[in-house]
Design a protein around this nucleic acid. Structure first.
Lengths: 130, 130
DNA sequence: ATAATATTCAACCAAACGGTTGACACTGTG
DNA sequence: CACAGTGTCAACCGTTTGGTTGAATATTAT
């Protein structure tokens, strides 16, 4: 069980370790897309994107459904939550010790969506429009 | 600059995509350890652990300092915060849509806290004191 | 039936990975 | 000094990765 979890975490983090795949996830976060739609912004073969999608699917980060001859991809959130929790678990120690992560995150967030007002809801909230 | 960030994220997620390296991070979260101390719980050569440490160091997830002939490793939190923020960025969409992640995270955390003395590969004793 | 569209498959490639071994280098201490 | 302890380096191994090409499969439209 633990091993299974570890394996799944391996897959999730590995899937996230590629910029193209992260970009795909971001695309799909905006809504479902067909495989060709997913591939369109990337300077890469359709077969290459198909492989990336398979990696993401193996990590359960996306799901595919066939509608006619087009396959729609949509992102799923569950494994992301696991990864999130894993980071949280690691980060908890430092946070307890240093109490600086929240501050850091705030700065980081402002830096990332530099043009967006951080509408401080005291807790995390971020809108990225691109 | 974005590319630099992406490369660093690549490194961080890749470093996290290996169970041994995650275990090392957890060890170091409890306090500094020498390289041999880091290696001790793992069924692996010292040279192998040295490589893992280099990967973690490249991702700026750990730092080394030499004291005499022993090298002390300690974890650092900054890139973890970046990864955290990246997940946050991706997750924000779903959270907005589904509003279920917080609940999920809560359950997940409880689940993680509940399981203690998890054994992973071989003779790895994992002590979690919290 | 045929053609066009959408996606995957299989083979291949160079590069990187995880891991080992053996040699090397540094540091402290007898 | 020599020697034991700590750690890295270089070379190698088999596997995986990210990517390409070209053929193959489905599905829909003509």
């Amino acid at each position: 069980m633990v091993d299974k979890d570890a394996l799944q975490l391996d897959r999730v983090f590995h899937a996230l370790s590629d910029a193209t795949r992260r970009a795909i996830l971001e695309q799909l976060a905006h809504g479902e897309q067909s495989v060709t739609e997913v591939a369109e912004p990337h300077d890469q073969t359709l077969a290459g994107i198909s492989k990336h999608l398979k990696v993401l699917e193996a990590a359960s980060l996306i799901e595919k459904t066939r509608l006619g001859r087009v396959i729609q991809c949509r992102a799923t959130l569950e494994p992301l939550g696991s990864a999130y929790a894993a980071l949280e678990e690691l980060g908890a120690f430092w946070r307890k010790k240093l109490e600086a992560l929240d501050l850091f995150l705030k700065e980081e967030k402002e830096h990332i969506n530099d043009k967006q007002s951080t509408t401080s809801k005291s807790r995390r909230k971020k809108i990225r429009s691109r």
